[in-house]
Amino acid sequence: MAKKFTPKVLTANDLLSGDVIYWNDNGDWVDAFEDALYLDTEKLAFHVLRLAQKQGLDKVGLYLADAELGDDDKPRPAHFREDFRATGPSNYHHGKQAELA
């Protein structure tokens, strides 16, 4: 049985910096998970993925990551792996937690 679709955001890494990035509703890549476009249907999610894949070569490893809506109606990671990607490592104040502060 096909797995039931759950909401997603589109994420990748920037080719030059390696930074984690997210696709927003303007079709741009942004740094914060909460600024990502919330993809709440399968059709939309795969449409956005295909669209992004056709654009340029300067983004790496595109994939759809599980997301849910927070109390503020902004997307947030639905799994702890994406939480770490969106935040940074837990042993140092490095990565996004430092850069986006």
Binding site: N13, G18, D19, V20, V60, G61, F84, R85, G88, K96
Partner: peptide
């Protein structure tokens, strides 16, 4: 590019290269 960078020890990890 990926196999070429890996041959030279360059990975893409969770947050960065």
């Amino acid at each position: 590019f990926k196999p070429l960078r890996l041959m030279n020890g360059l990975y893409l990890q969770l947050h960065a290269y």
